[in-house]
Design a binder for these strands. Structure first.
Length: 848
RNA sequence: GCGGGCGUGAUGGAAUGGUAGACAUAGCAGACUUAAAAUCUGUGGGCCUUAGUGCCGUGGGGGUUCAAGUCCCCCCGCCCGUACCA
């Protein structure tokens, strides 16, 4: 019998697919199109099991759709700009460009043996000038359409390296290389006006039915629509021009509980006071220390500084509320100023307690509850409470009703107005870095900021740069900056900032529809191929990448680069989990953990007998040495085994633990299927046997279950069914015809997951052409119905017996049979049941 | 801090509110073999001098329901995101 040799089989069929050109996508109006896309990788240099899993899932969908008659687009590219390339240049020398393209070549070489159904003719990298030149064209069109503007924003500033740091380069408030205390610093930067679309981006989420609910919810919360009251406190003894402080609150119903006003350290009033008062200047400087991340700002100890200025309450003009500058108030949100109601807000409570400010309740759980609180009282807005200091609406009402009543009351009395605000901020796209897409504008002394002319695109990155000094090499390049002003022609300088790499990944899916065009997209291609029918990627991209892409699709529609129908570019989204592996660690001399490679550990021990500590299910990472190299797996077992395993053991949305025994088991199974095929091929073609019908029934059930599994991303469940069907076939004594049909069908059902072995079996069994293009088998409903079903009998919800009945037996007859069973009779003790529930085909529950 | 998710045998996991543990792995027992590997078969949550269609059991505590792993509330742990990592 022929032996299963994946290396030989896999190489042969990959050549056959390439020769047949079956994965090269072309417009074909006669077939329904299907665009499947996995989030493209960053070219780090090595593929890992996470990639294998991600691309295998997409491949299963793509191959399945080919076999159901679709014209499939399944492209691949590289998210190739970004910091690691610059870091590598700094750490080991070389050039980001060389490093990146070398990595791409390596990774492509590692991906090809997986046998993915990718149209490689459409491949591109975002660092190709042909790509980022078109991105610059989009930038100019967006600018022209008013979708981009400039404003100030704070960045992490390293005062020793004199450079801007990314958030991940700030460790415990210090620069990662210099160790200096990081400060916030304001820079003028470019912004996409995504916040103008906040309402639309939120409401459109409702129609994304084939997106995970959790992702829609996360985006909704991120956009953060709120209805509130914007109004002003008048001030006493404030500097000129600040006789009012405008605040925004989502809880106007707590207005009578206000005990202080808080303003951001970046509020215009704070900035004015800073000029006059060195103490305030010192406090504001203190607030500006530390990083710019929300987590850092929110968890920092709350600090306030009493400005000495007092505010009058709109409904109690004798009152004098202190105005504090506070470090937890963000200038970006609302008006940069709040009123604090410590009785009903955790943060305000902490602040008021620290600075001994009054705590005044405005509502209580019941009218007779104690007014004096020991903790902030923050019930859900939907809960009814008693307003002891209400001023609008009913005495007892929900927070929601009270908020609406308060807004109406305030508007009627000329105290501010109800407004809808969003948490979503504009998207700052400027980066003070080299390895990104240059922003195509020129700064001219006479004309100001001038867009570059389209015919001058792409504005290419210069190659002759060095990374010996921190900061952006474009800034210190001797000639690259010099350029004539596109408007007046006088000498001017280029913008040296490049674009956020999220820009690159916000439209690549559209570019795949016409990757070589000399415009960003081509109408016919975009019209035909968009949208992405199935998008697959990690949950870590739930908010930023997906939200930015939704914004870009809208902006591209406005500027004529995408059709109206593509404003939501991803029809269906699937978020997959990570691939994890145990960590093996021992303790080093300094008490720190020392990590060991899986191949160095046998039975929990190192070669020298040292016991290792095993940490389960950790995300694979090089530093922890728990990375399993896909190439090694492919060399040992073949790509089909790797593909089968990453799909089999875990639901795709969850993390999968890589285990050597699991991979071994996958290999054994494929061997078994291979051997069954070989056995059937050697059968006497006219041989008859026993129970052909049983085998064919199992086959039709398998067709049904696997089809459902593939269509619903239940790959692990589909594989479990394939195990079951394989076991039936292996034991079957059926005749040749039935067994031959069964093995051919098995090969087809396995083809999306193990395409090479399936082609081999298909060919062995005399199948026509390629299994990759053969039509997907159809389950015969008639072959799937069982005549009898086994119903469990429950007594008071606990299983106490079972009956076997015809599948179509009426409810009342099932009830009679159930009541007659020994178990029920025993439980009834001659009495009558209180209730009998019969769920046809499912269960019988008798309540006694 | 905030937003979202997850938690089931020794292990990965299955289960439209309806028989908890499908399928797979480790382990154990057996067949084949001179022996081993490979292969095949069985077993495979815990408890019990009552071995029973017995009791307990899906992170912990409470609730809704004829029925809860699944729905609701509180708590614990882990993971993702938190706007300059990609």
């Amino acid at each position: 019998m022929a032996v299963y040799t994946p290396s030989e089989i896999e190489a042969r069929w990959q050549v056959a697919w390439e020769k047949a050109g079956i994965f090269t996508a072309q417009r074909d109006e006669t077939k329904p199109k299907y665009y499947v896309l996995e989030m493209f990788p960053y070219p780090s240099g090595r593929i890992h099991m996470g990639h294998v899993r991600n691309y295998t899932m997409g491949d299963v969908i793509a191959r399945y759709k080919i076999s159901t008659g679709h014209n499939v687009l399944h492209p691949m590219g590289w998210d190739a700009f970004g910091m690691p390339a610059e870091n590598a240049a700094m750490a080991i020398g070389g050039h980001p460009k060389t490093w990146t393209y070398d990595n791409i070549a390596d990774m492509r070489g590692q991906m090809k043996p997986l046998g993915l159904s990718i149209d490689w003719s459409r491949e591109f990298a975002t660092c190709d000038p042909e790509y980022y030149g078109q991105q610059q064209a989009l930038f100019l069109d967006f600018l022209d359409a008013g979708l981009i503007h400039r404003k100030n924003a704070s960045v992490n500033w390293d005062p020793i390296d004199m450079t801007v740091l990314a958030n991940e380069q700030v460790i415990d408030g210090k620069g990662w290389r210099s160790g200096a205390d990081v400060e916030k610093r304001d820079l003028t930067q470019w912004f996409f006006k995504i916040s103008d679309m906040a309402g639309e981006l939120k409401s459109a989420l409702d129609d994304l039915e084939n997106w995970p609910a959790k992702v829609r919810l996360m985006q909704e919360n991120w956009i953060g629509e709120s209805r509130g009251l914007q109004f002003a406190f008048s001030t006493a003894n404030a500097p000129e021009g600040f006789d009012r402080v405008e605040v925004y609150t989502t809880r106007p119903d707590t207005l009578m509980g206000a005990s202080f006003i808080g303003i951001s350290a970046d509020h215009p009033l704070a900035k004015q006071l800073e000029k006059e008062n060195p103490e305030i200047a010192a406090f504001c400087a203190e607030c500006r220390k530390g990083g710019t991340t929300a987590a850092e700002i929110e968890t920092a100890e709350k600090m306030g500084f009493d400005t000495g200025i007092r505010a009058r309450h709109p409904f109690d003009t004798d009152s004098k509320l202190p105005i504090y500058i506070a470090n937890f108030i963000l200038m970006d949100y609302g008006t940069g100023a709040i009123f604090g109601c410590p009785a009903h807000d955790e943060r305000d409570w902490d602040f008021a307690t620290k600075y001994e400010l009054p705590i005044i309740s405005t509502f209580l759980p019941t009218p007779d509850a104690d007014e004096k609180l020991t903790t902030p009282y923050v019930p859900a807005k939907t809960e009814e409470v008693y307003y002891n200091r209400g001023f609008a609406g009913e005495e007892t009402q929900t927070g929601e009703a009270a908020i609406n009543a308060a807004i109406d009351f305030c508007e009627a009395n000329g105290v501010g107005q109800g407004v809808t605000k969003y948490r979503l901020r504009d998207w700052g796209l400027s980066r003070q870095r080299y390895w990104g897409c240059p922003i195509p504008v020129v700064h001219c002394d006479s004309c100001g900021v001038v867009p570059e002319k389209k015919e001058n695109l792409p504005i290419e990155l210069p190659f002759d740069v060095d990374f010996d000094t921190p900061g952006n090499p474009l800034d210190r390049h001797p000639t690259w900056r010099d350029t004539p002003c596109p408007s007046c022609g006088k000498p001017a300088t280029r913008e040296t900032d490049t674009m956020d790499t999220f820009v690159d990944s916000s439209w690549y899916f559209a570019r795949f529809t016409s990757p070589r065009a000399d415009t960003p997209t081509v109408k016919e291609d975009a019209d035909y191929w968009m949208n992405v029918d199935q998008y697959i990627g990690g949950i870590e991209h739930a908010i930023l990448h997906l939200l930015y892409s939704r914004f870009f699709a809208r902006a591209m529609q406005i500027t004529g680069h995408l059709p109206e129908s593509a404003v939501e570019p991803f029809n269906a989204l699937f978020t997959q989990g990570m691939v994890t592996h145990e960590i093996y660690q021992t303790e080093g001399d300094n008490g720190r953990p020392v990590y060991h490679l899986p191949e160095d550990v046998t039975d929990g021990k190192l070669a020298d007998g040292t016991e290792v500590q095993i940490v389960p299910s950790a995300k694979m990472s090089k530093s922890k040495k728990n990375v399993v190299d896909p190439l090694g797996i492919i060399a040992n077992y073949g790509a089909d085994t790797a593909r089968w395993f990453v799909l089999s053991d875990s639901p795709p949305e969850r993390d999968v633990e890589w285990t050597a025994s699991g991979a071994e088991a996958a290999y054994k199974h494929l061997n078994r299927v291979h051997n069954i095929s070989a056995r059937i091929a050697e059968m006497d073609k006219s041989a008859s046997g026993k129970d052909d019908d049983g085998l064919l029934r199992a086959m039709h059930k398998a067709i049904h279950d696997v089809t459902v599994g593939v269509e619903t991303f239940g790959f692990n469940a589909a594989i479990a069914k394939l195990y079951g069907f394989t076991a039936v076939l292996q034991k079957s004594k059926a005749g040749y015809a039935a067994q031959h049909e069964a093995i051919k069908t098995l090969a087809q059902l396995m083809a999306p997951m193990t395409p090479h072995l399936s082609e081999h079996i298909w060919a062995t069994q005399g199948g026509a052409d390629l299994v990759a293009t053969a039509p997907w088998p159809k389950a015969d409903e008639a072959m799937m119905v069982d005549d009898t079903v086994t119903l469990p009998i429950q007594i008071n919800g606990k299983r106490r017996g079972e009956i076997s009945v015809p599948a179509d037996m009426p409810k009342d007859e099932v009830e009679k049979l159930a009541l007659a069973t020994q178990a029920v009779q025993k439980a009834l003790e001659g009495g009558t049941p209180k209730k009998v529930i019969v769920v046809p085909g499912r269960i019988v529950n008798v309540v006694v």
